[in-house]
């Protein structure tokens, strides 16, 4: 349960960060929406699937994280 809560918190902070990046022009709106969709589907994805999907949605962000 604690881990679950931490994940929720992390998702929201990540989302907040992506939003800021979009406002700074580092991410397009399309990329941002793709990330939102990915976060909504996060629970059903393995780490590899997540990385693969993130790379597809936003190459720049994927590179930044890795």
């Amino acid at each position: 349960m604690v881990l679950d809560k931490e994940l929720d918190k992390t998702k929201l902070l990540f989302l907040d960060a992506c939003r800021n990046l979009m406002e700074l022009g580092e991410l397009s709106q399309e990329e941002y929406m793709g990330i939102c969709d990915l976060l909504d589907r996060l629970d059903g994805l393995s780490r590899e699937q997540f990385e693969q999907e993130l790379r597809r949605v936003s190459r720049g962000l994927s590179d930044l994280i890795s």
Partner: peptide, 11 residues
Amino acid sequence: ISYTQVYNRLL
């Protein structure tokens, strides 16, 4: 309903 949707609506 998801966090992201609520988050974006609030923003």
